[in-house]
Design a protein around this nucleic acid. Sequence first.
DNA 1: AACGAAAAATTGGTCATACCATCTGTCCGC
DNA 2: GCGGACAGATGGTATGACCAATTTTTCGTT
Lengths: 228, 228
Amino acid sequence: MATIAKVVTQTKTEAVVESLARFVTEAKLQVSDRLPAERDLAIALGVSRPVLREALKRLEALGVIEPRPGSGTFLRTTLSPNHTHLVVQVDLERESLIQLLELRRALESEAAAMAAARAPDEAIANLGGLVDQLEDEFRRTGDNPESDKAFHMALYVLAENRLFWDVITPVWEQLETFWQYPLGKRDFAKRTLPLHRELYERIRARDPEGARKVVHRMFEIVEEDLRA
Amino acid sequence: MATIAKVVTQTKTEAVVESLARFVTEAKLQVSDRLPAERDLAIALGVSRPVLREALKRLEALGVIEPRPGSGTFLRTTLSPNHTHLVVQVDLERESLIQLLELRRALESEAAAMAAARAPDEAIANLGGLVDQLEDEFRRTGDNPESDKAFHMALYVLAENRLFWDVITPVWEQLETFWQYPLGKRDFAKRTLPLHRELYERIRARDPEGARKVVHRMFEIVEEDLRA
DNA sequence: AACGAAAAATTGGTCATACCATCTGTCCGC
DNA sequence: GCGGACAGATGGTATGACCAATTTTTCGTT
């Protein structure tokens, strides 16, 4: 069957976005570097300033740039013409704590398995240090929100998949607001404490399945505590 | 320790985005409905048209709206003040494809286990029908992209967690573009075919661990095929 | 009355220009 | 040498106008 290509009209704003991506690449701009001033960019690209600004607003929405009034516009991520952006829309009102936890469980159990399978030895050793801190902070204060977060985030780094990190970060933030507001402090910290070291041991032993199971047990405790 | 709140300056454009979200909610606008004209919105919100347009460009970048010259601007998704947008940057290279697959594996293996644990019997029976279609389409055409997608998406419905659906949808879209462009058609459809029925059987047997393992085997085949 | 083509109105896309608020670096006076 | 005022640069906002695509209305023809 002969297919007919859909007409792709390109608005000037879109063209400017692409030109900007090309410019950033060719100029070898790095993260936190400053872009030329809006007026200059508009002239260089041969478009009016409103159009240039609309393109910038689009990049801003995608988290690529950050304008600072009075100073300039700065790069927040890398950018090149062959980058694409994946947008997940989440209704935070409807999504309950349980659903967020289930998502985290899915990501974290897999991340733990991936870490066990391929993280470099030195990185795993660092994780061991985090376990020490975790236990230490708990001994001193009876809780360990700081080092707990550091430990779990380290897992995602060990998994060596940036997407996991990108997805879990906002999920984690959302969970933190839950712990603060509707729910008070929970006490699963104590019960899950030993599992952290156990998880570290499973990863160190290069045991993906074992690591996955430990993570599941952690979440069972949390969910159990939540129902209580 | 006393913490000091970071100053949050809000630009007018950002305020307009929020106002728009509120408006869409209060006006009960549905997907594919038309928004008021730019000029009208600008007047109603008390801002200039450029600012209003910058806000629209932002929503456009997030895939929320779609402007059609001459006709108006239309809603592409639901929108309310509760919605948050999570953006992950993907570059069109083989490495990203693998990362996307790993993310999908994490979600899908857990979703399968959740489905086995709690999906209602009738819903699982429907999944069985999808397996029939899957095998039928493959017998007829030698491939089954349509029914394959239907089957996998059904898994996420059975998992009864909207977040999983929200996350996997754009991931799936992104994967589809990969199959089309950098890579050609792959032939893992044939090799993973029997696993679909097996997965259905594991879910029907209420065997979460078994379901999880079948999903993992599916992805092993896909990744193997990819390396070839 | 029904149909179809031309004209008018509507709507998003683009442009030019001006002014304001904020930040930064410089230069002057102490 | 130091502190503060000043000027320049930069992003944020507003006005008003015109263009191009689309939709709706109008009106003449059949």
